[in-house]
Structure formats: C-alpha cells, structure tokens
Amino acid sequence: MSTDQVHADKYVSTEVELYSVNNTSEPTKQAFFFPTIKKYLSSEAPGKKVLDIGCGTGDWTKYAAECGAKSVDGFDISEEMVELSKQATAGLINVTICVGDATNMTYGNNRFDIALSFYITCVLHKEAFTTHFTELHRVLVPGGKAVVLNLARSAFDVMFLKEHTDQVMVEKNIKTALETLPRNPTNQQINEALADLHDVVLVTFTLDSTGHLYRVTDVNQLTNGQVVWIKTQIMVFPDYYYSADYINEQIKTAGLSIDYIEHYFTEERRISYNNSKPRIKLERYITEDPPFLLYHLSKSSN
C-alpha cells in the first residue's frame, strides 16, 4: 500500500461505521432511494438467494427476507453494525449475518442470485474498488444480478442547496468556515467547521497540494481514488472520487455487464418530498442532475 493510500485510509476507514449508522436517517434517502429499492426487492427477491454487502443496520437484509427471499446473507466490516443487523433481523430464519470484507468475501463461487452494494464503492480505495467488482462477479450465479449505488458526477462539482437559498451567502459562509481550518485537518475538525452550513443539501470538498481544504467546483480537478469530503444535510462524510468512465471500466473488467443505470431522483418524488414539509426543501436541479445513480449489473449466464 502506498504512502498516499495510508494517508487516505486514515480519513475514510474511520468513518465507515458512522456512514452506515446514518445510512437510513437522512430524509432524502427515505424519499428517493427507499421507494426504488423496496420496489426492486419486492419484485426480484422472492425465491432468490440474496447477499447484502455492507449490511449496516440490516434494513435491506430484513426487507429482502420479508419479501420472500429463499435466503439472505448480510455482512459488514463493523462488529457493531453486525450486532445491529442481527437485532433487526431477529426471528427471521432465512437470514445469516456475519462480519466480513467487501473485497474478500468468504462465500463460495456462484452462490447468490442477487447482490446489493449500497454506499460501499465510495469508501473503497482504488485497489479495493476494483477487487469489489471482481468479488461480485465471483459470488453471483451465472445470470445473477447486482445493484450498486455509486456517486454521480454532480455529487462532486455541483452545490445542491435548500430551496430559495441565497447561494452567494452560502459561498461566503463556506469561505469563512474553510479559513478556520489548519493544514491537513482531521475529520472532526472538518465536521466542526462545516456544521453550520444548514442550507446545504450536498457539497464536496477536497485537499489541495498544500493540505488545505477547498470546495470542488470542477470534477476534472479530481483524480480517481482521491479523497473528498461530502457535506450533506446531517453531517460530513469522507469518500473516494471515481469517474463514470472509471466505474464502467472496472465493472466490465470484472466480467459484469451494465444492464442499465437508474436515475431514481424523479420530479414526482421531489414534489412529494417538498410537500411533506421537510426542514430542507429541494430545488429542481437535484432531479435534473442527480448526485447518486443505481447501476444494475448482471453476470453472463454462459
């Protein structure tokens, strides 16, 4: 592992558990992502062997089982998350939960009909990112399917704001917050500095060559595997950047096919979300240029 990789891992690896804990708490996930996955599992899971990679608090493990899956295996790298998943799925006889690694799965070849990988790829460094897709291909049966959630281009260089927000004022507040940070700040320092950006739905930061944090305004400034910090409504997450071309390349190199890429931030859901009176209402551009995409993948049946 390179020196740069060790430097990156000190940020991202410490936040994986935190990311997982908050996976189901953000209102936009409940409004946009949840309906899509519930519909998918209701249709595809019955009678199938399902793998939930990075199962976190066990929400999708439980839902797949309740939809009639033949069996559901879930694993997470965090023992604390595994315990929460076991609690969530207690009493479901078709569920098995364990500690595991998304880049070195302990399952045999050609075992699962469906694999779920949500919020996993964005916390994997380059070597692990590639291995994850290779492992997906290995554990899927011929003709098996995988659903992978990836950050989209706009997550890195578009600033999504609360409806009717003064962008100039937000940019001024960001500038002020960044000026308080030292070189090579810790995750805690970054969280504290950006905590008061309440009008931000999503905005991304990274370190420059001197170790100072700055807001990303051009995705072309980033390189594959670079650490970024994404400020959402509830907190700041350190992730890795990967371009669409790089993602596509790794998927195909692993032997998987991209059946289609789903854009689940629909205008209908945005209107419904805003009408539900959330604390932060969403502008239309979140549906026109969504920050997340679902990759529907498959393994050849040959």
Rank of each mutant, 00 (worst) to 15 (best):
T3I: 15
Q5G: 08
H7L: 10
D9V: 00
Y11R: 03
S13N: 13
Y19P: 00
S20R: 06
V21F: 05
V21D: 07
N22K: 15
F32L: 13
F32Q: 15
K38I: 01
Y40W: 12
S42Q: 13
G47C: 02
K48I: 07
L51W: 04
C55S: 13
G58K: 04
W60L: 15
K62I: 00
E66M: 10
C67V: 05
S71F: 05
V72H: 04
D73K: 05
S78L: 13
E80A: 06
M81R: 12
V82F: 03
T89M: 05
T89Q: 07
A90H: 08
A90E: 15
L92W: 03
L92E: 04
V95Q: 13
C98F: 09
G108C: 10
N109A: 02
I114W: 11
A115N: 08
Y119K: 09
C122H: 05
C122P: 00
C122E: 10
V123G: 11
T130I: 15
T131F: 00
T131W: 00
H132D: 03
H132A: 14
H132E: 10
F133T: 01
L136V: 12
H137E: 10
R138M: 09
L140N: 11
A146G: 08
V148N: 09
L149R: 04
S154Q: 09
F156P: 01
F156H: 08
L161R: 09
V168A: 11
M169Y: 12
K172N: 12
E179H: 12
E179M: 13
P182H: 12
T186I: 10
N187Q: 11
Q189M: 10
I190H: 14
N191G: 02
V200Q: 01
V200T: 11
V200R: 00
L202R: 14
V203H: 01
S209C: 07
T210Q: 10
L213V: 14
D218T: 01
V219I: 15
Q221G: 06
L222I: 07
T223W: 03
T223P: 00
V227Q: 02
M235N: 08
M235E: 08
Y241M: 09
D245I: 08
Y246C: 02
Q250G: 06
T253C: 08
A254M: 06
I258P: 11
I261R: 14
I261Y: 04
F265Y: 15
F265M: 10
S272M: 11
S272I: 07
R279G: 11
R284N: 09
Y285K: 13
Y285R: 13
T287S: 10
E288I: 02
P290T: 03
F292Y: 09
F292K: 01
K299M: 03
S301L: 11
